[in-house]
């Protein structure tokens, strides 16, 4: 995280599941999401693209943006549907590199 983005960093919750066996990454993510406060998004670091997670996210009212690298093989940014501040921050982080 570069020092030029304090606002984004303040809104980000990181979850590194790279060293966990399936389905722990899924379980951890689903456990962490209810705790997201207004304006917060989850930044997941993953070894693979968690296709199943996407499916479950939709059902539970969350949206996501995913990219390959650079911090992990896959990075997923997740926010609560309707939380515009979180969405803007997450998408900026996701597309910003």
């Amino acid at each position: 995280m570069s020092p030029g983005e304090p606002e984004v960093a303040a809104r980000e919750r990181r979850l590194d599941v790279r060293e966990l066996e399936p389905p722990e990454p899924l379980e951890r993510a689903l456990a962490a999401l209810p705790g997201l406060g207004p304006g917060e998004y989850l930044h997941m670091l993953h070894r693979r693209e968690p296709l199943l997670l996407y499916d479950l996210l939709e059902a539970q009212g969350f949206r996501h943006c995913a990219r390959e690298g650079p911090e992990a093989p896959w990075e997923i940014f997740i926010w609560r549907e309707g939380d515009e501040a979180a969405r803007a921050a997450a998408e900026a982080a996701c597309h910003g590199g």
């Binding site: 996407y54 499916d55 995913a66």
Partner: peptide
């Protein structure tokens, strides 16, 4: 975005 594509593949999961 990827979400639509992935959702489609998983909707087919039996």
């Amino acid at each position: 975005m990827l979400a639509g594509m992935a959702g489609l593949a998983l909707d087919r999961a039996p």
